[in-house]
Design a binder for these strands. Sequence first.
DNA 1: CTTCATTCTATCCGTTCGGTTAGTTTAGCT
DNA 2: AGCTAAACTAACCGAACGGATAGAATGAAG
Lengths: 196, 196
Amino acid sequence: MARSRKSDPEHALQAAISMFWKSGYAAVGTRQIEDEAGITRFTLQTSYGGKMALFLMAVDRYLDMFETVAPPVEPDTLDALADWFTFFLAPPVMPECMAYGCFLLNTLIEFGGASSEVNQRASRYYRLLGGRFELALEHLKRLGQLPGDFDVRQGAQLLQSSTIGLNVLIRAANSSEAGRPSIDACRSMIHGWARS
Amino acid sequence: MARSRKSDPEHALQAAISMFWKSGYAAVGTRQIEDEAGITRFTLQTSYGGKMALFLMAVDRYLDMFETVAPPVEPDTLDALADWFTFFLAPPVMPECMAYGCFLLNTLIEFGGASSEVNQRASRYYRLLGGRFELALEHLKRLGQLPGDFDVRQGAQLLQSSTIGLNVLIRAANSSEAGRPSIDACRSMIHGWARS
DNA sequence: CTTCATTCTATCCGTTCGGTTAGTTTAGCT
DNA sequence: AGCTAAACTAACCGAACGGATAGAATGAAG
């Protein structure tokens, strides 16, 4: 009854993620999407709902991926938590894009709080980053790996801020390697929490 | 011999800083610059060298301002260093723009390391942020306010990453207040360095 | 093999972009 | 006052933007 699609939606979405991740929303044109994602501008409108809709799909998919590599909620040791930061140096997913920092953080800065659609995604991101750090630290405190008077909220906040800064450093330098000093510093801080 | 200028260059530059700070480079059009900076597109070309040249002037001026409010190089106490973070909540310069985060960090993310002109400014910024943190911590160590085995490099790296993350949080929320938890966490961390 | 809904290709649309050009106004000098 | 160089105004440029339209191609159902 209907003609089958020529383009692969999954490949198109992955290409969209790569483009927007690297260049941001405004800097990617619909002609470029045609070329790299393999969909026509017509299809972009009819099947995806336009450039912004595709962009939000890309962000959502990115967050889905991030969910699988977000900080562990129940690490057994401080070391297991500290090890999470080393993932930046050997990313298990989309390693070719990691040099562009965090897609969602880049997006947050580009839109600067002006888009409610983006802001909603930001909430989800914060839950996955700061929220998980908090759960992890609470878990470690329960295990006795952290002092009884350790402030979990502030510890999580610190890890979140540092992770965000780390991603900015990586994007600015176009290299995950640029994050190494920050990563080492974070790991030291976490290990330092054990004593006292 | 020559006709005197109608527009005020200083006001134009300040307006440019505000616009680019708030919206980024690409999102500010030359027509908008005409309206808000009080210079015509013609003048933008002949006297300023175009949009990008004006933008770089704005960035340089921003860094000049930042130089006056960057972290102290010789704080007397850990508390004096910690107090620097509270400046975000009551900024002494351009308070109306602080809700947009750090102009230079926003710029770094927008260009993503693709502009050498921007990258040069980044170096200066890192010197003013991480470099000064390092000097301050070295100074405090010399004063005996920090343990003898305290790792100054990693401490400075941590403060730098956290500060960057803090600025991103502020921009995303369009409010300096959004940075308060991070600021408190940083202050606690700094104070925590005293003991042991 | 015809039918027909759907996806394709190929233009076309109005808008906005950064920058340029031609021509006018104006201030500082003799 | 008259001259001239600089700074103004206003119109224009080609290019790129996101999106829309018309018509051809196509594949599954009958």
